[in-house]
Design a protein around this nucleic acid. Structure first.
Lengths: 254, 254
DNA sequence: CGTTGCGTTGAATAAGGTCAAATAGAGTGG
DNA sequence: CCACTCTATTTGACCTTATTCAACGCAACG
């Protein structure tokens, strides 16, 4: 059933220079362009070496496939190297709620630590590649390198803060405010990753956006059309171009 | 402005037996009736001693006063010893969203770890008493006692899981389902603390419930009345008695 | 005993959901 | 490469649900 493949990273031999290994496999964290998202800034060489031992495998997940399902045994958290994923939770009565859309540099699976089982599903919205971080090793590293410990706590805490932001969105914003906030949030995150802040490809469907925002897909579609009529954005299917970012912000602020 | 008081716990002298100190000050974690909520089960005597050094102060907060505000410098997390609190987040444009209601045994302030500033407010719904846990000491303990580290990670992770549950509630439930879920959740948590599962005093106003559930206070009030008409509960102001718990569950399940 | 905050209830309204139909793309197999 | 299928998206008409606005009741408190 799991079509995702796990690839063990070829161990670097000591005769191979760090540089060449880096180029050859593109696997060292020190050379990863997402380094600043996954790791603390000030990490000495020894600590970096320890981190790179920890990231012992990669996993590829094809579009539509699950990285993990709710209820699966928890063993590792995942750092996204490439690709978009969504996380969802399931109700007793079968309803599904999208809890987040996730980009390269972000960590998945934190919801499994507390119970030993992942609480939700993580599904690839496009072919994705992830670093596998066995959590017992993460904890070991945290005990031995305070700056790593602090970093992990920061990640967990910021996830809580992010969730509170979503609660605010779902609990006290109107539909058009939710969509504006959603687009501005995507824009900010794309910018931070070096992509265009105003021109991007949505990987998720209207229904998935709707689930995330607590709206029906028809409502999402109508709002896209309305924003387009108001000259805030241009939409063509999954391609979005923000043409009036202040206008979008004003939808939030009014 | 902060009317909350900080009380340093009297240091135990070595001539005083642990037993008598325990009784006299009622401050040792080992003797706390909330112990199982705050601490891991299997903690040896030495570890317990370390924990008790960590909990170096108590803080009292009067009804309506804030334990901390959004933006305050983060230094400690708080374990609730007694009293109910709410946590809220504030929008740019002044709207407030209740993100949780918190009972004895729960930890507050986790949202401050990542940024060094509390992200939201914590306000007492009734006079409350809290254990102050300076976070740098918590981390130190985590590094030295793996079971404590694992416990902290569990608490953080379960907070994320809780938040995802709230997202599910806000994003995909109808008003009556939300209130039913809210009441059942309270019931479960009261039970877990040894109180009646069916008979309790709400510490929060209709407006606060509404904010938490993404509803207006009038809607909450109408739903209480409807549930009463349907013989699911009896309400009188803030006093609620659940008289048909299966019926409430059915509101969720249908 | 009036004030004040909280809660309840009714009537009108608006926001978003539901149902339905048409269209547009993307992917697939011949 | 093209026709076909399937899914995603858009849009309209109508409906339901929750909000808004308003009035009133109740209980606590000085």
């Amino acid at each position: 059933m799991p079509t995702a493949t796990v690839t063990r990273i070829a161990p670097r031999t000591s005769v191979m220079s760090a540089q060449s290994a880096l180029r050859k496999f593109e696997v060292t964290c020190s050379g990863c362009n997402l380094r600043e998202m996954c790791l603390p800034k000030d990490l000495d060489a020894e600590a970096m070496r320890r981190v790179e031992q920890l990231v012992y495998a990669r996993r590829r997940v094809k579009r539509g496939d699950a990285l993990f399902h709710a209820g699966d045994d928890f063993g590792a958290v995942y750092a996204i190297r490439s690709g978009f994923l969504k996380t969802t939770v399931l109700n007793d009565d079968g309803r599904e709620q999208v809890t987040g859309f996730h980009m390269p540099g972000e960590l998945l699976g934190l919801d499994g630590i507390g119970t030993g089982h992942y609480n939700g599903n993580a599904v690839a919205l496009e072919d994705a590649e992830l670093c596998v971080l066995p959590f017992s090793l993460v904890e070991e590293l945290g005990r031995e390198i305070p700056v790593m410990q602090r970093h992990l706590h920061g990640v967990l805490s910021r996830e809580i803060v992010r969730d509170h932001g979503v609660m605010m969105l779902l609990g006290s914003m109107r539909a058009e405010e939710r969509l504006a906030a959603f687009l501005l949030n995507l824009s900010k995150r794309f910018t931070h990753r070096g992509y265009s802040p105003s021109d991007f490809h949505l990987r998720m469907t209207r229904e998935e956006i709707g689930s995330y925002l607590g709206l029906k897909l028809e409502t999402v579609s109508r709002l896209f059309s309305r924003f387009q009529d108001d000259r805030l954005i241009e939409v063509q299917q999954k391609h979005v171009r923000i043409i009036n970012i202040e206008g979008l912000e004003a939808v939030l602020g009014d």
